[in-house]
Design a protein around this nucleic acid. Structure first.
Lengths: 153, 153
DNA sequence: TCCATATCCTACCATGACGGTCGGGTTTTT
DNA sequence: AAAAACCCGACCGTCATGGTAGGATATGGA
């Protein structure tokens, strides 16, 4: 049970954007360098964030990305959802919207199997803890962690 | 982001054991048939539960498995932990106990990166929702779901 | 005693998702 | 026109996952 690295990278990227003023765009190159992440891969990651309307972009020289909204108004559940596709602890939760593909083991009556009760709670726990965290919080945290003396040499 | 099928199968298995009285052991074969799961694979799953001390076993004819404790005293976080190894939303959380393998991206100071704040909360959310659910609850739920009239034919 | 039933254990395997690269296209600034 | 950057799709190696195979060991019953 683990989130993919898309989530990790994407969150880092968002934090990095949050640290910049939203005036002039930040290039992916800059972020890739700052975080030590592969540029080409970041492109795929940021594409998801853009499609989800979380970041905006400008092409061409001096182009780049910036937050579509102030960081205080961005809940991390949106970010993770955009990156991860959907926040589902079990396969049968994914198709939720479409044609009710049920758990296969689920009795005909629907919404039956006992395990679903469990996974539903887990899903709730995950989503709640994501919702209660805003991007602004993470940005603030990273700002503070910044000036920690390492060796004071 | 998804739990492995080991978790799913294992939880089903535990529920099934919870439905049986803990007197006479239940064979894996019976459970595999009841749930429609591959026997050989279940063996691997149940091995983890046994090693974690959640179920006990008897070999030989009329052998099988039973709960090591009453279902009311089994928290689902124990079950999932046994099955899944550890409940960690991100790689760098796994080595926790061993030699402090840090996030690689984490600044030298340690406990630094902003994303860790997020994943820590998520982990908390998951564990809490698992802890608050006992096996007994799931067993009870499955008992009730049992007698749902499908067509009343 | 011998067979059926069952747990136990280890090795093996195929598929698919994941993390990542590559090449090229398009847009914009200088 | 050249550089900087976003954009897009195809490709690819590795590794965890889900599952199988085969056998060893233990136990109860005929």
């Amino acid at each position: 049970m683990i989130f993919s690295s898309k989530a990790e990278y994407g969150v880092r990227l968002m934090v990095e954007l949050g640290r910049q003023s939203a005036e002039h765009p930040t290039s992916l190159k800059a972020i890739a360098d700052a975080e030590g992440l592969p540029l080409a891969y970041l492109e795929q990651v940021v594409a998801r964030l853009r499609k989800a309307g979380l970041v905006m972009s400008a092409r061409g020289a001096h182009g780049g990305y910036w937050l579509a909204r102030p960081a205080t108004e961005i809940g991390m559940h949106e970010v993770v959802q955009a990156l991860e596709g959907s926040i589902a602890p079990m396969e049968c939760f994914i198709h939720e919207h479409t044609e009710r593909v049920l758990c296969s083991h689920e009795p005909d009556a629907g919404q039956g199997c006992a395990t679903k009760l469990l996974w539903t709670r887990v899903q709730g726990g995950i989503i709640r803890s994501l919702q209660m965290t805003t991007l602004a919080e993470l940005v603030e945290f990273s700002r503070r962690a910044e000036r920690v003396p390492t060796v004071a040499a």
